[in-house]
């Protein structure tokens, strides 16, 4: 018999505590939004503090969701549910989830998507990819954000563009490689991009599968994130 304590699977323990943390952060973000709504900031400095609190909490929430999803993906627990969705619904949900963050930062966000555009994909997973990109852009953009969906050569293309300084050159080259070479103390692991790429690749149809693309410039002159789904 093996010793019980040696038998504990660290990744399993981690996953279950991540799950708890995520729920706590969820409560924290909701309470924070309520506090800000009930007691609006009295001056710019306060507003800035609220922004930081809100942004960092949202970011932790997003990271935890990603960690959990990747854990489930690797252990085949991930419920991947394809269904027909109106793309606009999924995009508007992500904006609505983060409207406090967007408003507090005075970001002008536009959603550009035909109302009748429907697609066959996992709305929860793709929604969380878009949400993460939006949260991230809120930090790096100057003043504007564009969330757009179009059909391009039989693929659904969702674009999140900003007017910030754009993505660094290393990320443009090979977004997913970043996870493998990332140094933990470098401040970011690019887990979000890895996550996005995995989610995109889960979507397959007729020998085509989804992918992501990063460019700079684009409609607002800043970073452009695109996810393509067959």
């Amino acid at each position: 018999m093996t010793n019980q304590s040696q038998g504990v699977d660290f990744s399993l323990v981690l996953a279950s505590s991540v799950h708890d943390m995520k729920n706590s952060i969820g409560m924290l973000v909701a309470s924070l939004a309520q506090v800000i709504e009930e007691q609006p900031p009295e001056n710019d400095l306060q507003a800035q503090h609220f922004n930081t609190l809100h942004y960092e909490a949202s970011r932790i929430n997003g990271e935890l969701v990603q960690l959990l999803t990747i854990y489930r993906m690797q252990n085949n627990y991930l419920p991947f549910r394809l269904d027909q969705h109106y793309v606009l619904d999924v995009l508007e949900d992500q904006v609505a989830r983060n409207h406090a963050l967007i408003d507090n930062r005075h970001i002008a966000l536009a959603v550009d998507c035909p109302e009748s555009l429907a697609w066959y994909f996992d709305g929860d997973l793709v929604g969380s990819v878009v949400q993460n990109v939006i949260v991230n852009c809120c930090r790096y953009t100057r003043s504007r954000l564009l969330v757009k969906a179009t059909e391009e050569e039989g693929m659904l293309c969702i674009t999140v563009a900003d007017d910030g300084v754009g993505y660094p050159a290393t990320m443009l080259a090979a977004p997913s490689q970043q996870v493998k070479v990332a140094k933990v103390n470098a401040g970011t692991t690019h887990l979000g991009l890895y996550f996005a790429e995995q989610i995109a690749a889960l979507h397959k149809q007729h020998n085509r599968h989804g992918y992501i693309k990063l460019t700079n410039g684009g409609p607002l002159g800043g970073g452009v994130f695109k996810i393509y789904l067959p």
Binding site: N23, G26, M27, V29, A30, A33, E37, N61, D89, E92, D93, V95, A96, R97, N98, H99, A100, D124
Partner: peptide, 16 residues
């Protein structure tokens, strides 16, 4: 609806 939910999200879903 997955928590956390916001007022805007709730309203949007309800309207739909």
């Amino acid at each position: 609806l997955a928590k956390p939910i916001t007022g805007r999200l709730l309203e949007q879903r309800l309207l739909r």
